[in-house]
Structure formats: structure tokens, C-alpha cells
């Protein structure tokens, strides 16, 4: 039950790093607020004086939705373009965030002379940004690998449904391919996570080697790495179900319930950040306790919690 131990350590760490979680939420909100203002402005222009807007309080009005697309689609295109631009931008911001999170986690502020989160976080983000961008580019080979595997799988499975008569089989084969694709995505994401940890822990400027070593590490410790990852995935799923049940119970036909539902949504977004920090903390602890001795870069400052754990176990 090693994985459980690291899981709870991660949860504890994420809970104690409340400011970090709030910071992640803030960045998320900043990005999303651009969409809010644009969309709100657009809807105010085209719909706020129409009685049909009222329909949206009760249900999703498909008729008005398609009319919006037809008669005011150009303005909507601008918003969609902005959203795509923001998504791409957020990829790079999340690369920065990853550096900040890991750097913060590796410097427990209770024992470090740098007690304030922001300088530490931004130092880490900036310091590792270039390396993580390179890592992102190198990791594309792994993402491409997933596509190749799925294509091969598809070629192998396609003859089984030739003629299209067995639609049940076809459905389950598609489902199996989807599950495999997701498993592979999680695997690659996990490998990249450990590569980042290795770069931060070893403070190395090399990127390809840590990625390569992370592949070795993940497969060497496949049971534990997967267990940690899927425990957090399960937590995320449980939180989502809880969120879904709560928001479903809110009848959003008036101002206050609408604001309340949005507030619940923000708690959900916060929880995503909490889980992200928890996962990274958990993976870092596991890596530091199970990984090989560091050969590159500066010596690693050992977190106080980790230190005490290793003394007692």
C-alpha cells in the first residue's frame, strides 16, 4: 500500500499549500474572464432585449442557438477564435505553472528561508520554463506514438467489423480503442510529469535524458506510479460526481441560484487545482524516495515531511 501512503501525503501537501491552489485558480479565472467579458458583451448586444432570451433560463433553446449561429455567427467566430488562442496560450502558461508548482513543492516554506509563496513560485516558473517547453516539444514524439498505436490498433480491429453487420461488436471495439487511447494518454502524461520532477529535483538543464529516464522509471515502478495516478484520477472522478449532483440540484432560473451555481463551479475548479498539486506532490515524494541517486545539478534539498517520513519508515 505504498501508493496509498504517497497519495495521502500528496493530499496533505495540497491542503497545506492552499495559496498555491488559489493561485492556480486565479490564473484559470483570469483566462476564462476574457471569454466571459467577450461573450457577455456579445449576448448583451444580440439577445438581451429579446424575449426569447428568457427561454435559456428554463432550457437550452436550440432554435435560438441556431438562429444566433446563422444571423450573428461572425461575432461568435471571433469569440471562438479567442478561445482557441487562449487555449494555446494556456498550454504555455501551464508549462510555467508546472515549474512554479514543482519548485514550490521542493522548497518547503516552513524550513526554507523564502517563506513567501509568490517569489518562490514565479522563480520556479521562470527558471524551468525554457526546459519545460523543450520537454513539451520532445514529448510530442510520445503523443505521436499514441496516434501510431491507435492507428495500428484500428487497422487490426477493422477487419472484425467488415460488412458492418455486427454493430454491437463495432461499438465495443470503438469503446476499447477509446479506453486504450485514454490509458496511453495518462501514461504519457505521467511520464512527462516524472520527467519534470526529475528536471526540477536534479536542477538539470538537460531535458531529453530526464524524459528518457522518466520512461524507465515509470515502467520500472509501473505498479506504484499507476496506482498513485489512478488514485488521483479516482478522486477527480468522485469530486466531479459530487459537483454534478450538487449543480444538478440547483434550479438556475433566477439570479441568485445562477450565482450560486457559478460559485459551486468555482469550488470545482479549485478542487481541480487541489488535485493537481496533490498529484504532483505525491509523485515528487514517490520519485524522491524511489528514484536513483541524483547525479546531475545541485544537491536536492530534502523536504521536511519527506525527511521525517524516511526516518520513521
Amino acid at each position: 500500500m505504498k501508493a496509498l501512503k504517497y497519495y495521502f501525503q500528496g493530499i496533505k501537501k495540497a491542503t497545506s499549500e492552499g495559496k498555491l491552489v488559489w493561485l492556480l485558480w486565479l490564473v484559470n479565472v483570469l483566462f476564462a474572464s476574457l471569454i466571459y467579458f467577450q461573450f457577455s458583451d456579445y449576448m448583451n448586444q444580440v439577445l438581451s432585449r429579446s424575449a426569447v432570451a428568457e427561454n435559456f433560463l428554463k432550457t437550452f433553446d436550440m432554435n435560438t442557438f441556431f438562429e444566433l449561429l446563422t444571423h450573428n455567427g461572425e461575432k461568435l467566430n471571433v469569440i471562438v477564435s479567442l478561445a482557441i488562442f487562449l487555449l494555446i496560450g494556456y498550454i504555455f502558461v501551464s508549462v510555467f505553472l508546472n515549474g512554479g508548482i514543482l519548485f514550490t513543492l521542493i522548497h518547503p516554506r516552513k524550513t526554507d528561508e523564502r517563506r513567501r509563496l509568490a517569489p518562490l513560485f514565479f522563480e520556479g516558473g521562470g527558471k524551468f520554463f525554457g526546459r519545460f517547453v523543450r520537454l513539451l516539444i520532445y514529448s510530442l514524439t510520445l503523443w505521436l506514438g499514441i496516434i501510431v498505436i491507435i492507428l495500428i490498433l484500428n487497422m487490426i480491429l477493422k477487419p472484425l467489423t467488415k460488412g458492418g453487420t455486427n454493430e454491437v461488436l463495432m461499438f465495443y471495439l470503438i469503446l476499447i480503442q477509446l479506453v486504450i487511447a485514454f490509458l496511453l494518454v495518462f501514461l504519457v502524461k505521467m511520464i512527462v510529469d516524472y520527467a519534470r520532477i526529475k528536471i526540477v529535483v536534479g536542477d538539470t538543464r538537460k531535458v531529453f535524458r530526464p524524459l528518457f529516464q522518466a520512461v524507465g522509471f515509470v515502467f520500472r515502478k509501473l505498479g506504484s506510479t499507476l496506482a498513485i495516478y489512478y488514485l488521483f484520477l479516482l478522486t477527480a472522478a468522485a469530486v466531479f460526481v459530487l459537483y454534478w449532483l450538487v449543480q444538478k440540484a440547483v434550479n438556475t432560473q433566477a439570479l441568485l441560484p445562477i450565482l450560486f451555481a457559478f460559485l459551486i463551479g468555482q469550488i470545482f475548479i479549485l478542487s481541480r487545482g487541489w488535485i493537481k498539486v496533490g498529484l504532483q506532490a505525491s509523485q515528487m515524494n514517490f520519485f524522491q524516495s524511489a528514484g536513483p541517486p541524483q547525479k546531475t545539478g545541485k544537491p536536492v534539498p530534502v523536504p521536511a515531511e519527506k525527511n521525517s517520513e524516511s526516518q520513521t519508515t
Partner: peptide
């Protein structure tokens, strides 16, 4: 203008986008 449905739609879209980011 009736701002309530607009607010609902705009906050809804915002929340979807936030989830997508995560």
C-alpha cells in the same frame, strides 16, 4: 434589457471554458 439569462449563459460558457483549461 433582461440581464439574467445573459448572465446565466455567459457564466455557463465561462465555466465550461474553465473546465476545458483544467
Amino acid at each position: 434589457p433582461n440581464k439574467t439569462p445573459i448572465l446565466k449563459l455567459a457564466l455557463g460558457i465561462t465555466l465550461y471554458f474553465q473546465k476545458l483549461l483544467t
